[in-house]
Design a protein around this nucleic acid. Structure first.
Lengths: 207, 207
DNA sequence: TGCGCGATTGACCGTATAGTCATTATTTTG
DNA sequence: CAAAATAATGACTATACGGTCAATCGCGCA
C-alpha cells in the first residue's frame, strides 16, 4: 500500500515540521532578547519545553537554528515587500508601499525586527550584512521606479539609488526608534510624516 | 616639599592615565572587530602588548573597559556635535552642522562607529540604548531650533521633534551604509544629497 | 496487557574565557 | 649598589555553554 506508507510518512513529516516550528518560535524570542551569542541552547530548549538533546534532533547546531529563524522571516518580509511594491503604480506609491510593508511586518513580528536591529554583525553570524543583502532587491525595485519617474518628468531629478536607500534608512530609523523606546506617536502618524516629508522633498521646485 | 611630592604623584598619575589610554585604544579595535561578547581580554592584552594580569591593574573588569571606551567617544562626539550646532545660526545650518559633525567624527573614529552600529544591545551591556541616550541632547537642540524657525515663518510647519529625529536617522543610515559596504560615493556627496533632500522637503510650498 | 522501537531526556564532556594571585622583573631610594 | 617598593606577568581556577549519547519513556500494535 504505497498510499498508506506515503500518508504515514507525510504525517511523520508534519509532526517533524511542527516541532521545528515550535523550536524556531522559541528561538526567535530568545535571540531577540539576548542576541545570538548570549542566547543559550538551554534557554531555547526551556522556552520550547524540551530537553536540550531534543533540540539537536531537529537542528544540527545553534547556528542552524539561527539561520532557520532569520531565513524564514527575511524571506517572508522580502516577498511581502516586493508584492506590495509591484502592486503599486507610481514611484511615490511604490515608496509608500515599501514603507507600509515594513511597518506592517514589524508590527506582526516584533521579535524578528529586534534581532535584525540589535544583533551584532561580528562573527560568527553576519546578521547585519545578511539583512542588507535581503534589502537589495526591494531597493533595486524602488530605484528603477524612481529612475522611470524622473525620465517621465514626474519627479525632479535626484540620484535614484541614493534616494531609494534613503527611503530604506528613513523606514529603518523610524522602526528602530519605535522598537527601542515607547513610541509617543502611532505607527500611522510616523508613516504619514515620512510620506509627507518624502513627497515634499520630491515635488518639483517652485520655479 | 609638597611641590615635589605633588609633582611625583602627578607624574605617576600621568603614567597611569597613559597606560589606561593604551588599553582603551587596543580595546576599541578589538570591540569594533568582534563585538563586546566575542572580544576577549586576552586579545585586548595582546594588542596592547601587555599581559592579561596587567589589564586588571588598570580596569576592574571587561565591562569597565568597555564603558571607558564608549563613554570616552560618546562624550567627545556629543561635545563636538553640540559645539558645531551652537556655532550655526539658522535651523537649516544647525541641521547641516549636526550632519557634518557626525560624518567628521565617523571619519576620524571608524572603530568607535563600528561598535555603535554593530554591537548587540542585549545584556550585559546596552550600547544601542546608551547611544540613543547620548543623542538626546543634540536632537533636543535641533528640535528647539526647528520650532523657532517655524514660529518665525522661516520654515513650513512640521512636527519639530520627529523631524529632528528623522535628521538623525538619515545621518545614521548614511553612515551605517558607508561603514557596512565600500561606499560608491564620497562623504561629501552623501552629505550634499542629504542636505539637498532636507532643504527641498522643508522649503515652503509652491502655492 | 505487554512488547518493541523510535522519540526524548539530561548528565556529562571538552573547550573557552573572565578573573586571580604567587612569582618575577623593574624602578626607586637610602 | 643593595634593599625595598612597585609594576608586570602568565599559569591557574571557576564557571558557562555547545554538543553528545547511554539510559529512559511512552506510543502503537498484537
Amino acid at each position: 500500500m504505497p498510499e498508506l506508507a506515503q500518508l504515514a510518512k507525510s504525517k511523520k513529516q508534519v509532526v517533524w515540521e511542527f516541532r521545528q516550528a515550535e523550536i524556531i518560535t522559541a528561538a526567535r524570542k530568545v535571540f531577540a532578547e539576548k542576541g545570538y551569542i548570549s542566547a543559550t541552547v538551554d534557554e531555547i530548549a526551556a522556552r520550547a519545553s524540551l530537553a536540550k538533546g531534543t533540540i539537536y534532533l531537529y537542528f544540527e547546531s545553534k547556528e542552524h537554528i539561527y539561520n532557520a529563524v532569520m531565513t524564514n522571516d527575511l524571506e517572508t518580509l522580502r516577498r511581502l515587500t516586493l508584492e506590495k511594491i509591484a502592486a503599486a503604480d507610481t514611484a511615490l506609491e511604490k515608496i509608500s508601499a515599501y514603507i507600509n510593508a515594513r511597518f506592517a511586518y514589524c508590527e506582526e513580528r516584533r521579535d524578528f525586527f529586534r534581532i535584525m536591529y540589535i544583533e551584532p554583525s561580528g562573527s560568527p553570524v553576519l546578521s547585519k550584512a545578511k539583512a542588507r543583502e535581503w534589502l537589495r532587491e526591494p531597493v533595486r525595485e524602488l530605484t528603477v521606479a524612481i529612475e522611470d519617474a524622473i525620465a517621465r518628468n514626474q519627479m525632479r531629478p535626484v540620484p535614484a539609488e541614493i534616494l531609494a536607500w534613503t527611503v530604506a534608512d528613513l523606514t529603518t530609523g523610524a522602526l528602530q526608534r519605535r522598537l527601542a523606546t515607547t513610541p509617543a506617536t502611532t505607527a500611522r502618524e510616523d508613516i504619514d510624516f515620512l510620506l509627507h516629508f518624502i513627497h515634499a522633498a520630491l515635488r518639483p521646485p517652485a520655479s
